[in-house]
């Protein structure tokens, strides 16, 4: 019976990972990736590995989306300034 929780979380992980790959825009991918990071932390907790879950939570919920969004913004700005120079 306790396996039902693991099955639910595994199904959600599979669905959200597929959705993250299927998105076209990097900013939207970062949003789905943030959801996936938090969900993976929940999966690790359900599988009785809360230490891994703690580090996954720290990296996945805030740090990875922050890096991706900063990269997206920098690239957009660079493209914009090149267009202005022409």
């Amino acid at each position: 019976m306790a396996d039902a929780l693991i099955v639910v979380v595994l199904l959600l992980v599979a669905a959200s990972a597929t959705a993250a790959v299927a998105q076209r825009d990097p900013a939207r991918q970062a949003l789905v990736l943030s959801f996936l990071g938090t969900l993976l932390a929940a999966l690790f907790t359900v599988l009785q590995a809360p230490d891994v879950g703690l580090s996954q939570l720290a990296v996945g919920s805030a740090l990875t989306p922050l890096l991706i969004m900063l990269c997206v913004r920098k690239i957009r700005r660079r493209g914009r300034s090149k267009e202005d120079a022409r």
Binding site: A30, T45, L54, A62
Partner: peptide, 23 residues
């Protein structure tokens, strides 16, 4: 295991604020 919820309560709004600022 309560520590995980504590960390999520701290870092979750931080992640949302990142998106609110950059989007």
């Amino acid at each position: 295991y309560v520590d995980l919820a504590l960390l999520l309560a701290l870092l979750g709004p931080v992640g949302t604020l990142v998106f609110a600022r950059l989007l």
